[in-house]
């Protein structure tokens, strides 16, 4: 197996969708060739192409989908549409060997608690505004600490001494981070110590995530928790979840670092699962869907 990637990094500011998409189209062939080379396969060995249908940035999804359609036509193999969020869960289940976990999926663009219930992956809780990664990156950038946000902020947090007052927003099983970002930037302007701000936002935002995961775990009466997505690399978040999971006598799993962030292998693996169970689409149906929900996908590979 090969899991190749090339990631767009803006020179300054946040991600510009058009520029990210242009970067992707410039690098698609290079990444594809190196994946083929690394895996030692020939083009004719490939019998299915999977692509991410959504959710995500429209221009970037479109670039990927166009590339996938082209490959599928040139090689004359079927095309499989994969939901990005579900792919994160499935690669986690594969690599951690867990059966039926409550999944906390945290990344730059998504924050949700997912669980499999009656034929579909249901969203039991999610962010009402911005994602955790987005929040931490935005703060880190504004404070001039650099990117990626979470590890840098956690490093600063180690030297923090006091917890400042911040809004703690958990509504049922949903969370909200935009108020935290606003207050953090206000503290920054007021000249509070950066270490204290970092400590506070890390502790508060991760507590919120742990609490909603705990609620889902208790309500659904499951025995496993899976942490996935780019922010799954965070040491502090892992610690908190581990502590919480222990109290519930459940098992805790974290996706290996290489497969925590967005990666090609997860799309390929989920595509394979779907294809083997007879679910693929024609070129005409292969629209992207930037706001695709996990609930939209009928899961035919799980009971």
């Amino acid at each position: 197996m090969a899991n190749e990637s090339s990631i767009y990094k803006p020179l300054k500011g946040g991600i510009h969708p058009r520029e990210a998409a242009q970067y992707h189209s410039r690098n698609a062939i290079k990444v594809f060739s190196s994946a083929i080379e690394k895996s030692g396969l020939k083009l004719k060995d490939i019998n299915v192409i999977a692509f991410s249908q959504g959710p995500g940035l429209g221009p970037c999804l479109r670039t990927g989908a166009t590339f996938a359609r082209t490959l599928s036509q040139v090689m004359n193999v079927p095309l499989v549409n994969v939901n990005h969020c579900i792919a994160h869960v499935e690669i986690g289940r594969l690599l951690c060997k867990c059966e039926d976990p409550v999944t906390l999926y945290v990344s730059g663009g998504n924050t949700m608690v997912l669980c499999f219930e009656s034929g579909r992956y249901r969203v039991f809780g999610e962010t009402l505004d911005i994602a955790i990664g987005n929040f931490l990156d935005a703060f880190s950038r504004e404070a001039g600490l650099g990117l990626p946000g979470p590890p840098i902020i956690e490093e600063y947090a180690k030297k923090g001494e006091k917890i400042l007052d911040f809004p703690y927003r958990v509504k049922g099983m949903d969370v909200s981070f935009s108020g935290l970002l606003t207050s953090a930037l206000k503290y920054l302007k007021k000249g509070e110590k950066i270490e204290d701000i970092c400590l506070s936002i890390i502790e508060i935002s991760y507590s919120m995530l742990t609490e909603v995961t705990e609620r889902a775990l208790a309500q659904l009466d499951k025995k496993e928790v899976l942490l996935t997505g780019g922010v799954a690399r965070s040491k502090r978040l892992r610690e908190m979840l581990e502590e919480m999971v222990k109290e519930h006598n459940a098992k805790f799993f974290v996706v290996p670092n290489e497969f925590a962030g967005d990666n090609g292998a997860m799309i390929a693996w989920n595509g394979l699962l779907q294809y083997l169970n007879g679910k693929y689409i024609s070129i005409e149906e292969s629209f992207i869907n930037p706001r695709m929900r996990p609930e939209e996908v009928e899961i035919n590979w799980r009971k």
Partner: peptide
Amino acid sequence: IKNYRHPKIDYEI
């Protein structure tokens, strides 16, 4: 008391 939370945050919540 939730041990995963920072004591101060935990108490305030």
